[in-house]
Amino acid sequence: MTGSREALPDVDGSGLTLGDRAAIALTEYREGNHQALGDLVREATPLLWHTVRAQGVEHDAADDVVQSTWVALVRHAETITEPKAVLKWLLVTAKRAAWEAVRKHRDDEKRRTELPDDSPEHPMALPAKDPLPDAEVLREERDRILWTSLQKLPGRCQELLRLVSLADRPDYRHISAAIGMPMGSIGSTRGRCLAKLRTILDEQGDFSWT
């Protein structure tokens, strides 16, 4: 039994957050029990997916980034020094890989734009910068208004609100590292972003979110 294991939350205790379960999963994986890691993959893949997509990574590339993040976790399972920070590790790893994917995609696009044989049969179509689907896919009008209102916020607010909406509050410290925002300011920034969002929403009518 390692010292770090003793510092982990009580496995049988209630109120464990995703970050706690991630820490337990890594520790158990190191001890040869892979079950908890499988559960973690099921639970944390959505958060990783939206972290990667928030960087503007195209759909299929995002799929590969999430997969390779999980592969990287098991490859580094023995060398991650702080199991309690494994959720942060996952988010930061996914985000870095996302940046790399975006950079490569732009380089490829640039090279292709420079190709001289851009024939009329194969016109060069530059993909939209934001690969996200249109608000039209949302069934409810208030959801479409919420989504389009979110797009009007500064990019940092959009990223923060998308991710914190998916996370337990005590896990914000992991998210703060992944989006490069100091832990001490994430709560107040979230408050300011929500206030801006509500101002935009209020201009468009009276909606109830409860």
């Binding site: 997509r53 996200l132 896919v137 949302l138 208030r142 959801d143 989504w147 979110l150 909406s165 979110w209």
Partner: peptide, 11 residues
């Protein structure tokens, strides 16, 4: 909470 729902539905 609603935003989480929208994020999941749109992407």
């Amino acid at each position: 909470t609603r935003l989480a729902h929208v994020v999941e539905e749109i992407d």
